[in-house]
Amino acid sequence: MSSAPRPFRITIPEADLADLAERLDRIRWPDELPGAELRAGRPSPSGVPTAVANFPGDNVIQVLAGLSNVVTRWREYDRGGHFPALQAPEELTSDIREFFRSLPDTL
């Protein structure tokens, strides 16, 4: 069995494309939040202690977490996935509780 990609063609009616274009033109995007401007392509630092629970399949979180957060806790899990509240609720709940217990009362 060959795993090489095979070309295919998809036909979308012109009326559907026109409808999509009209809908996209009507999207109302939210205004930029104060202090959320990009600096050299990165979000402004938040200064907020942040915990990361990295579940299998969510590899992008590692890149995003450190961009504008002060990561004070990082955990890797063997089970779960993109929806850990459904796939690994015990691990997620335990991790959230441990993180908040570790924060100083002055926050």
Rank of each mutant, 00 (worst) to 15 (best):
G80A: 11
A65E: 03
D95I: 05
V52C: 11
D58C: 13
Q62V: 06
E76S: 12
R79S: 12
Y77C: 07
A88I: 09
T50N: 03
V70G: 05
F83A: 14
I61G: 01
P45I: 08
E76R: 15
W74F: 15
V48K: 06
E91T: 13
Y77I: 06
N69I: 03
W74S: 02
A65R: 02
D58P: 01
E90P: 03
A65V: 05
V60W: 07
F83Y: 15
P49G: 07
L92S: 08
Y77F: 15
D58N: 10
L86S: 11
E90F: 05
F83Q: 11
P56D: 00
S44Y: 03
N69T: 08
T72S: 13
G47A: 14
E91S: 13
V63C: 02
V52A: 05
G47N: 13
P45W: 10
A88R: 03
R42Y: 13
L92V: 03
Q87K: 04
W74L: 12
F55V: 01
Y77V: 06
V60I: 11
L64V: 04
E76V: 04
E91P: 00
G81N: 02
T50V: 02
S44F: 02
D95K: 02
V48C: 08
V71P: 09
L92E: 05
A51Y: 07
R75E: 15
F55Y: 08
R75N: 13
P43T: 08
R79T: 15
G81D: 03
R42E: 12
A85L: 14
P49K: 06
L64S: 04
V60Q: 07
S44I: 01
G47Q: 09
T50H: 02
R73I: 01
T72C: 07
P45Y: 11
H82R: 06
I61H: 02
S94N: 10
F83S: 09
A85P: 04
G80P: 03
P84L: 01
T72W: 02
Q62D: 12
I61F: 03
V70E: 15
Q87W: 00
A51D: 11
R42V: 07
P89E: 12
A88Q: 09
A65M: 06
N54F: 02
D58A: 10
V48Q: 09
R42A: 13
D95Q: 13
N54E: 12
V70Y: 14
P84V: 00
N59H: 10
P84G: 02
E76W: 06
E90V: 14
G81W: 00
V52T: 06
G80M: 03
P45G: 12
L86K: 14
E90S: 12
E76G: 07
V63A: 11
N69W: 01
S94I: 04
E90W: 04
N69G: 05
N59K: 09
N54W: 10
G57S: 05
Q62Y: 01
V63S: 10
P56V: 00
D78R: 12
R75Q: 15
S46M: 13
S94K: 14
D58F: 00
F83M: 10
P89D: 14
Q87N: 09
G66D: 09
Y77D: 04
N54V: 06
N54C: 08
W74D: 02
F55A: 00
Q62W: 01
R73S: 14
A65Q: 10
I61N: 02
P84M: 01
P56K: 00
H82N: 05
L92T: 08
V63H: 05
H82P: 09
A85M: 15
P56Y: 00
